[in-house]
Every structure is written in C-alpha cells, then in structure tokens.
Amino acid sequence: MTDAEWAVVRDAMPVPAWLEGRGGQPEGYCRRVMLDATCRRREAGRARRRLMSMACEK
C-alpha cells in the first residue's frame, strides 16, 4: 500500500479507543500492515481463481 493510498484509508478508519482515553490497550499489529496483508490475500485469491479457470478451459 502506498503512502497516498494509506492517507486516504487512514481517515476512514475509526480511532482506537485507547487513543481517546476510553480504555483498552494498544493494538498488537499496525493497522496499515494488517490492511495491506488483507488486500494482498484477496489479490492472490483472485489470481489463483483466474489461473484455475484457465486450466479448466483446456
């Protein structure tokens, strides 16, 4: 995820409760890293499905 993409997405995400003093504890993982991993997993799934559909056509 590029810095420009993250700047757009970051504003759409809710502020963690612990940053607003509402309790809780800091997150174990960076939100940007988690979101990037989710996007990459979706892209990999699409590529795999596309590859499988091409293999089944033959």
Rank of each mutant, 00 (worst) to 15 (best):
E20M: 13
L35S: 10
V8T: 12
R10G: 01
V33F: 03
V15N: 12
A44V: 02
R10T: 03
S53G: 03
A47T: 11
R31Q: 01
V8H: 06
R10S: 12
S53K: 14
R48M: 08
M52E: 13
R32K: 11
Q25L: 06
R22P: 03
L35M: 15
G24Q: 05
A55D: 03
D3L: 06
R49P: 00
V15G: 07
R48E: 15
R50H: 14
C30W: 06
R41C: 12
R46Y: 11
D11C: 01
A44F: 07
P16L: 02
D36Y: 11
G21C: 05
V8P: 01
W18T: 00
R46S: 07
G24D: 11
M13V: 12
W6S: 13
A17H: 09
V33D: 15
G24A: 07
A44I: 06
L51E: 14
R40K: 14
E43M: 08
R40Q: 15
P14H: 03
G24S: 10
R40Y: 09
V15L: 12
A55Y: 10
W18F: 15
C39D: 10
R48G: 06
E27R: 13
G24C: 13
L19M: 13
E57C: 05
R50C: 06
Y29V: 11
R41P: 00
A47D: 06
A7E: 15
W18R: 14
M13S: 00
R32T: 00
G45V: 02
L19N: 02
R22S: 08
A55E: 04
T38Y: 05
V33H: 11
M54V: 08
D3A: 15
V15T: 15
P14F: 04
C30V: 02
K58L: 07
G28C: 04
W6F: 05
V9M: 09
R22K: 14
V9H: 03
R10H: 05
V9Q: 09
Y29G: 04
G24H: 01
P14E: 07
C30G: 12
A55K: 04
A37Y: 00
L51S: 09
M1R: 01
A47R: 15
E57T: 08
R41T: 10
P16K: 03
G45H: 01
W18L: 00
G21D: 11
C30H: 08
R41G: 02
